[in-house]
Design a protein around this nucleic acid. Structure first.
Length: 675
RNA sequence: GCCACCAUGGCUUAGCGGUAUAGCACCUCAUUGGUAAUGAGGAGGUCGCGAGUUCAAUUCUCGCUGGUGGCUCCA
């Protein structure tokens, strides 16, 4: 029998007879308990059943590896579809990929399927897994495929789209069930015992709102029972730091249905966090030569006609406001809502709009007086509140809202100044992320799509601006990706993106170069040559909005803010009622030193009071009793439970002020360890 | 907006065709207690809103409002 040479992962070469499968080689290398789900053949992912007929290299794909988990998830999606079709024969499977957090499968004809139905499907999946069905790969011609999927228009659409005329493809078969798929897959359903279906939702066929709505089922799969249990526990744990839960527990913000969806009410404790952050940011703005400005919440429709926001973005704006005399006249004339809307779009009547962006107002500040090249760069900053009509279903906590305050600024610069100014914006992000210990974010540099002509401005200018963005992103020292086609039509941009506790990505800040608005508003400055030139604008909101940023921060700290940001920095707790005066006296002294203090002189026991105050995660609890009162001292209990007895009040105040001043990440004014 | 699910005092929650549990928080009294729950008592709810079915609805049906997961991951 002819032999073939197989290179093993350690570089050794083994000889096997042709006809051996990849799975058999993996067993030969790693033994029966190989823990692999598929194999790499010449670095390509293949099934265990693949027959080896040429010299090649082979390695196992461990169930724990990224690729292995992906294979498991994909196979679990197939198992899900098999189970669903057995229970709901009318259902039409469409697509079912592995995703970052598990897998899903989309079904047509599965309306009114709800979370209560998940249990039965999951049970069926377990049953199929126990049956230890072999998962086989079968090569099919285009005709065979068309016949196999004759009753499933979705699969037929995929076949028509993905296959060149006359090409075949593969299906995977397990028991009676088969699905169109490239693979690879695990070799048996027995590998998929540890699945858990998590949720049901809807999705559109091919992500297109105009096409059929499908029912999507999400699930998780792990290699062992323990791993699944750990996964579920980790998800539960993550939910505890959800900013919506913590926001309520810690009284940071409130959303009231009588006020409106997506409109954040900053309660006193949350307002402190916002104020402290804004002050922190403002200090750096001053240092970087920004000018703080204030502008109103509304502006005339005409302003937004010039900027291009109205009516182009009409769907994502609150409807305009119309002056009351005009409104009365229109109403007397029998003008309907749609007439009104048409008149506004055509420009026949004017009104005001809640501002969806701050730029037009800042532009008007720029053009309020003649500018010379000596004035540039001009940097106008404002914590400007804007309003956008987000879709009902999109609104969520503080991260997706309808009214929000951007840490906004607009820089008016000459062409030559773009690079330095973009870099300056990035530096600010770096300083503040570093102060907050936020390192888990990604950066996306949006560039123009070279094949498209939708972009305004000359291409040499774009090249320079894009290069400036790349350089600035480089300076951050974190991973960033270049994304052609992601630029705005008016200029390239840099976006900062973070994940929330349940893995959703949110864009925080953005820095955008803009050639368009200066054009639209005919901005200019007098150059050294005595001629008028057009400035370039840079829009930047490095943290996006105070709402979203604080939401993300709550989760980042899990509610346990560093002392400088903490809504209350020290809770003073009395041992008994006779210490109330002393407690209030030191509270006054601490407040005078600028420390945020709360006093609990109620008559509950000390243990009880500590227990209750812990829930609010103050950086420090200050315990005062007879000893402290006599000596003019305090006992400190840090958030982590560490204690320090009989510390002189003045020295504590000095220390905590220093900790606040230095923005120390973890409250740490404790001498003895005593957990 | 669309699909599924959810909505009970400040929070967590039981319950059901006959107007409702419990714990924490709150208040009162006793206790004056030294670092994760002292004891006893009390108050607090038109069961999200509006209609319908019924002798009767928090419970069933419909609508609305609000919330949650998702609607970008492509055989």
């Amino acid at each position: 029998m002819p032999m073939i040479q197989v290179t093993l992962p350690d570089g050794e070469v083994n000889e096997y007879s042709t006809g051996i499968t990849a799975g058999e080689v993996v067993i030969d290398i790693f033994g029966r308990k190989h823990g692999c789900v598929a194999a790499f053949i010449d670095d390509e992912q293949r099934d265990f059943s693949t027959i080896i007929s040429n010299n090649c290299s082979i390695d196992g794909i461990s169930a724990e590896s990224e690729e292995g988990i992906h294979v498991m998830r994909h196979s679990a999606a197939h198992l899900l579809a098999q189970a669903v079709v057995m229970l709901y024969p009318e259902a039409k499977p469409t697509i079912g990929p592995a995703i970052e957090r598990g897998f899903y499968y989309d079904f047509a004809n599965l309306e009114s399927f709800g979370e209560t139905d998940l249990k039965a499907v999951q049970k069926k999946m377990h049953e199929l897994a126990r049956n230890n069905l072999t998962i086989e790969r079968v090569e099919c011609s285009e005709d065979e495929l068309t016949e196999l999927f004759a009753t499933n228009p979705y699969k037929l659409e995929i076949i028509a789209d993905k296959l060149e005329d006359g090409d075949g493809s593969t299906i995977y078969r397990q028991g009676e069930w088969y699905d169109l798929c490239l693979g690879p897959h695990v070799h048996s359903t027995a590998k998929l015992m540890h699945v858990r279906l998590t949720s049901v939702s809807s999705a559109f066929w091919r992500g297109d709102q105009n096409r059929e709505q499908l029912t999507r089922i999400y699930g998780l799969v792990e290699a062992s029972k323990e791993a699944l249990k750990l996964k579920m526990a980790a998800l539960e744990e993550a939910k505890k730091r959800d900013h919506r839960k913590l926001g309520k527990d810690l009284q940071l913000f409130h959303v009231d249905e009588d006020v409106g969806q997506g409109l954040i009410l900053w309660t006193p404790r949350g307002a402190i966090i916002r104020t402290v952050l804004q002050n922190f940011i403002s200090e750096h703005l001053t240092r970087q030569g920004y000018h703080q400005v204030y502008t109103p919440h509304i502006g005339k429709l005409d302003l937004y006609r010039i900027s291009g926001h109205f009516p182009y973005y009409q769907d994502s704006q609150y409807p305009p406001l119309v002056e009351k005399d005009l409104m009365k006249k229109l109403s007397d004339d029998g003008c309907s809502c749609s007439d009104l809307s048409n008149l506004m779009v055509s420009g026949d009547i004017d009104g005001y709009m809640l501002k969806p962006m701050n730029c037009p107002h800042h532009i008007k500040i720029y053009s309020s007086q003649p500018r010379s090249y000596r004035d540039l760069p001009l940097r106008f900053a404002e914590f400007g509140t804007v309003y956008r009509w987000e879709q009902t279903g999109e609104i969520s906590g503080m991260t997706r809202v309808r009214g929000f305050t951007q840490d906004d600024a607009h820089l008016f610069v000459t062409e030559d100044q773009i690079a330095a100014e973009v870099l300056g914006c990035i530096e600010l992000v770096q300083i503040i992320f570093a102060a907050l210990g936020m390192s888990d974010y990604r950066v996306r540099v949006g560039l123009r799509d070279p094949d498209s002509s939708k972009y305004v401005g000359e291409s040499q200018r774009w090249d320079r601006a894009e290069e400036a963005c790349r350089k600035a992103a480089d300076s951050l020292g974190v991973n960033w990706s270049e994304e052609p086609g992601e630029a705005a039509f008016y200029g390239p941009k840099i976006d900062f993106i973070v994940k929330d506790v349940i893995g959703r990505e949110w864009q925080l800040g953005t820095v955008q170069v803009d050639y368009n608005l200066p054009e639209r508003f005919e901005l200019n400055y007098k150059g050294s040559d005595g001629e008028l030139h057009r400035p370039v604008m840079i829009h930047r909101a490095p943290f996006g909005s105070m709402e979203r940023f604080c939401g993300v921060l709550i989760e980042h700290f899990a509610g346990k803010f560093p002392t400088w940001l903490s809504p209350t920095q020290a809770h003073i707790i009395t041992i008994s009622e006779k210490h109330a005066d002393y407690a209030n006296k030191i509270a006054t002294k601490m407040r005078n030193a600028g420390i945020r203090v709360e006093v609990d002189d109620s008559d509950a026991t000390i243990g009880k009071k500590i227990r209750n105050h812990r829930k609010m995660y103050p950086a420090y609890m200050i315990i005062v009793g007879d000893g402290e009162m006599e000596n003019g001292t305090v006992s400190i209990r840090a958030r982590n439970g560490n204690q320090s007895a009989d510390v002189a009040l003045d020295s504590f105040i000095t220390d905590i002020c220093e900790e606040i001043e230095k923005k120390v990440a973890v409250p740490s004014l404790v001498l003895e360890e005593n957990c």
